[in-house]
Amino acid sequence: MSNLDTMEAERLQASNLFYRDPALYDSVQADSDSTSICQALIDRYCPEARTLLDFGCGTGRNLQLLARRFDCIGIDLQPGLVDYGRHTRSELDLRVGDIRTVRLGCTADVLVCLGNSLAYVHENADLQATFQTFAAHAHRHTLLVLCSPVAPIQSQSPQQARVETRFGPATVTIGYEWDLRTQINTMRRHWVFDSGEECHDAIRRRVLGPRELELHALLAGFEVFEIVNETGALPVLGPGAYTVARYQE
Rank of each mutant, 00 (worst) to 15 (best):
V28K: 08
D33K: 14
S36K: 04
I37Q: 00
C38S: 11
C38L: 05
Q39G: 01
I42N: 03
D43I: 04
D43V: 03
R44Q: 14
R44S: 13
Y45F: 14
E48G: 07
R50P: 03
C57T: 15
G60S: 02
L65D: 01
R68G: 06
R68I: 02
R68P: 00
D71R: 14
D71Y: 04
C72H: 05
G74P: 06
I75Q: 11
I75M: 06
I75E: 09
Q78C: 11
L81G: 07
V82F: 07
Y84P: 04
G85E: 05
H87S: 13
T88E: 15
R89W: 05
E91S: 13
L92W: 01
R95N: 07
D98L: 13
I99D: 07
R100I: 11
T101Q: 15
V102F: 01
G105H: 13
C106L: 14
T107Q: 10
A108W: 07
A108D: 10
D109T: 14
L114G: 00
G115F: 09
S117I: 09
Y120I: 14
V121K: 03
N124Q: 15
N124R: 14
D126T: 04
Q128F: 05
Q128Y: 04
T130I: 11
F131C: 02
F131P: 06
Q132L: 06
T133C: 05
T133N: 01
